[in-house]
C-alpha cells in the first residue's frame, strides 16, 4: 500500500498533536502531584487559625440630609461679606464665648479663592440674628458633624429634638414674654454648662447663637439659652426674658441626647 504525500502530511500532523497531548498530560500530572502533597507534607500545612476579629460588609455613609457641621474658632478672625480679604467686614469672631468655652461656628458652605485660599461660610452669633459671614479656613479647627436638630415651636410652646430626622425627645417649654420675645430663626448650640450654682437655670444650660433683639445691654450680650428652671409650674408659658426653659427632668434628658453644635430652629 502506498501513502500519498498529503496523507503522509496529515499523519505527521496527527502524530505531532498526539505527542503534544501526551506532554500536556505529563505536565498536568506533575502539577497535580506538586499541589497534592503526600501525608507527611500535609502535616506541615496546618489549618489556618480562625480570625480574632469579626468582619462585616463595609457600609457606605448614611445620607447627609440631616447632617450639620460646626468648627471651633481657633484664631481670632474677621468674618466678611464675601470670600475675599478685601470684602467688607461683618463681625470680629473671638475664640471664646462669654462663658469661657471655645467659640464655635456653624458651617454653611465653602469656596476657594483663585489664590487657593479656602474660605468657609459660617453662621454668626451676632446681632442681628441670622447674620452670616465668610472666614478663612485656617481660623477654624477640625470639623465636627452632628445628626441632631432642635425645633422650638413658640406657638405651641413645645420643643422637639430630632436625630436623623426622627423625633427622639419632646418637651413643653417656656419662652420669652411678649416684651422680651424668644427670637425666631436658625441658630445653633454653642456650649453646655453644668454644675453651676444658679437654681433659676436648673441643673444644665445650653448656650445658643441666638441673641435677644431687645435686651441688648444684658450682661454678656443677651444670649438666649436653653435651660432648666426652679419654677416648673409655669411651663408651658410665656415666662422668660427670651430663654427657652424646660422642666429639669427634660433638660437633663436633652443634655444626654443633644451635642454641642446642634442646629436650633425657632419658629
Amino acid at each position: 500500500m502506498t501513502i500519498t504525500a498529503p496523507e503522509r502530511h496529515r499523519l505527521r500532523r496527527a502524530g505531532l498533536v498526539a505527542g503534544a497531548l501526551v506532554a500536556c498530560a505529563g505536565l498536568c500530572v506533575t502539577a497535580v502531584s506538586l499541589l497534592s502533597p503526600d501525608r507527611s507534607q500535609t502535616s506541615l500545612l496546618p489549618s489556618p487559625p480562625a480570625s480574632a476579629l469579626g468582619f462585616a460588609r463595609p457600609t457606605p455613609l448614611a445620607s447627609d440630609a440631616h447632617l450639620a457641621r460646626w468648627a471651633p474658632v481657633d484664631a481670632v478672625a474677621t468674618a466678611r461679606r464675601a470670600p475675599d480679604p478685601r470684602a467688607p467686614p461683618v463681625a470680629r469672631i473671638s475664640t471664646r464665648t462669654p462663658e469661657h468655652t471655645r467659640n464655635i461656628v456653624q458651617l454653611l458652605g465653602r469656596t476657594r479663592e483663585r489664590s487657593g485660599r479656602l474660605w468657609v461660610h459660617v453662621r454668626l452669633a451676632i446681632v442681628p440674628n441670622g447674620a452670616t459671614g465668610w472666614v478663612p479656613r485656617r481660623a477654624l479647627g477640625g470639623y465636627v458633624f452632628v445628626h441632631t436638630r432642635l425645633v422650638i415651636d413658640r406657638r405651641r410652646m413645645r420643643a422637639v429634638l430630632l436625630r436623623d430626622g426622627r423625633a427622639i425627645l419632646r418637651a413643653k417649654v417656656g419662652i420669652g414674654k411678649r416684651a422680651w420675645p424668644t427670637p425666631s430663626g436658625q441658630f445653633y448650640v454653642r456650649n453646655r454648662l453644668t454644675r453651676y450654682r444658679s437654681p433659676a437655670y436648673g441643673p444644665l444650660a445650653f448656650g445658643t447663637s441666638a441673641r435677644s433683639p431687645v435686651l441688648t445691654d444684658w450682661p454678656a450680650g443677651g444670649y438666649v439659652g436653653i435651660h432648666g428652671t426652679d419654677q416648673p409650674e409655669l411651663l408651658p408659658g410665656r415666662v422668660s426674658h427670651g430663654c427657652v426653659r424646660m422642666a429639669n427632668r427634660d433638660i437633663v434628658r436633652l443634655g444626654r441626647l443633644m451635642p454641642v453644635g446642634t442646629p436650633v430652629t425657632v419658629h
Binding site: T101, I104, N191, Y196, A220, G222, V260
Partner: peptide, 17 residues
C-alpha cells in the same frame, strides 16, 4: 490629631433667663 474643643463649662450662665 488635635485636642477636643472645650465646649462645656461650669461658669454660671448669664443667658437672658
Amino acid at each position: 490629631i488635635v485636642a477636643p474643643a472645650k465646649t462645656s463649662g461650669k461658669k454660671p450662665p448669664r443667658f437672658t433667663g
